[in-house]
Design a protein around this nucleic acid. Structure first.
Length: 446
RNA sequence: GUGGGUGUAGCUCAGGGGUAGAGCGCCGGAUUGUGGAUCCGGAAGUCGCGGGUUCGAGACCCGUCACCCACCCCA
């Protein structure tokens, strides 16, 4: 009794059956067209990177979630890793820009839609292998870059049918300035941000307790909470006051306002909301940070931000950069739950199925199929001379709208009998005109 | 990493110590050049895996693995 191997894909990985691939390709195609409309160019990078390329770019937690590949051959036993699966598309981009600087334009706008891998625990909408749809622009510090990125992802989501997404925006340097003003010392600032990020979950008292637990003085935490629990107008005045003597903080605040103003005439207008509690986990961000949310998903649909010195880690010279990443799997989860896929999405393998009554007709079936394919139809030749009822049942079950019958009469007469399953009609055409007749009926059905 | 739930036929699930079940799907027939309906028949499961209790375990106990949900974190 030999044990058969398990057939489930590895944990956190998925097989995509035809209907699901079609849905994925629909979303990817739409996002690609939107990105290209903004002048972004395609890029692809290897699944595997040298491990030093990735280590230290994502922060403490990121390092642990990187899939590492053990050294091969004689070094296998050492347990050492020299390669790793890419963790995101941003760090490989920074490496590519450093490596191919001379071949790339001074202002480089690229998009990249490829899988990334994280050794994370799977959950709803979270997998170990998942696609990201990244857009990034390098070579400019202008807030136009951020504004265009927000507009591009807004266009994409809007065209996919989302009408309730929000882009939360904040700024790393503004956060730093506010934390400094509140009296949080430098070593505790990232701790404080992690806690503040939970404000909506554990409440102001919860935040206060956790801040205290991490050794942050009560005075500082009170000052901080005053920002995060106040509303609109009051908060703006408080920010202005807090950063009036902080040049970097002031610049960050101006930058955010510029971004908001620049998006006014785009689909991102009204989507952008300042959220001082937004921190984002990746350590390479240096400026504006963004995250997209919809009400019915705990996580985010995407996120991004400015990272002006990541390329410098590879090149030795900084190149400013800013990017956005849409999470394909999250988008698909929500679209599936809300039934947002267009009904016109082809969910059938073919337009016509050729059915024959005996094996001797297969040669003729192949020839007629070639004619129909040349006319632009998707054609499936049923390969067995099964009973005709069984063949039609198969076509019907697969949603194939037409069955072309090729029997003795048809072969003798050079014709083919085309049955329209849904309409329950059938006509006999000459083999040469059948293609255009079927196309006609197909488009009529709309 | 924390808490809860579920693993039985290809799929959805019932059975809570005494012969392994239903619906759907699949195969064959009623109906050998025409599908969806109906009827008849059929194939199909070491009941997630390992141990224990018992005369006897799908069921009870212990362990383990997988998946789902909610946290944490993220896309």
């Amino acid at each position: 009794m030999s044990e058969r191997p398990r057939t489930e894909p590895a944990r956190g990985m998925r097989d995509f059956l035809p209907d699901e691939v079609r849905r994925r390709e629909y979303v990817i195609g739409l996002i690609t067209r939107v990105y290209e409309r903004y002048g972004f160019e395609p890029l692809e990078t290897p699944a595997v990177e040298n491990i030093e390329t990735l280590l230290g770019k994502y922060g403490e937690e990121g390092n642990q979630l990187i899939y590492k590949i053990l050294k091969r051959g004689e070094h296998e036993a050492s347990g050492q890793a020299d390669l790793a699966l890419r963790y995101d598309l941003t760090v490989p981009l920074a490496r590519v820009v450093a490596q191919h600087q001379s071949k790339l334009p001074r202002l480089f706008k690229r998009y990249q839609i490829q899988p990334v891998w994280r050794a994370d625990r799977p959950a709803r909408g979270r997998f170990r292998e998942f696609y990201q749809c990244d857009v990034d622009a390098l070579g400019s510090t202008s807030p136009v870059v951020e504004a265009e990125l927000c507009a591009a992802v807004s266009d994409a989501l809007t065209e996919l049918g989302f009408n309730d997404f929000v882009i939360r925006i904040n700024h790393r340097q503004l956060l730093t300035a506010l934390l400094a003003w509140a009296g949080v010392v430098e070593g505790q600032q990232s701790d404080a941000l992690v806690v503040l990020d939970k404000l909506d979950k554990i409440g102001a008292d919860g935040v206060k307790n956790e801040l205290a637990a991490r050794g942050i003085e009560a005075e500082a935490s009170d000052a901080l909470l005053s920002f995060f629990t106040s509303h609109s107008g009051v908060v703006l005045d408080m920010i202005a006051k807090a950063i009036e003597n902080d040049a970097v903080g002031s610049a960050a605040w101006t930058n955010l306002q510029d971004i908001m103003h620049l998006t006014a005439g785009t689909s991102a207008a009204g989507r952008l909301h300042l959220d001082l509690s937004l921190a984002r986990g990746l350590s390479y961000y240096t400026g504006a940070i963004m995250e997209i949310n919809v009400p019915d998903l705990a996580g985010s649909l995407g996120g991004g931000g400015r990272y002006d010195n990541l390329v410098g880690m590879f090149l030795g010279q900084d190149i400013p950069a800013c990017g956005f990443s849409l999470g394909l799997e999250r988008i698909l989860v929500v679209m599936g739950e809300r039934s947002m896929f267009p009904t016109t999405l082809a969910m059938t393998p073919a337009d016509v199925m050729l059915a024959t009554f005996d094996a001797a007709a297969m040669g003729d079936a192949m020839r007629v199929a070639a004619t129909l394919r040349a006319a632009g139809l998707r054609v499936l030749v049923y390969p067995e001379p099964d009973k005709i009822g069984k063949q039609i049942k198969y076509a019907d079950g697969r949603g194939i709208p037409f069955v072309a019958l090729l029997g003795e009469n048809e072969i003798t007469g050079g014709t083919v009998t085309v049955k329209h399953l849904a309409a329950q009609t059938q006509h006999t055409y000459s083999q040469s005109e059948a293609g255009s007749k079927i196309l006609e009926e197909l488009t009529q059905r709309g």
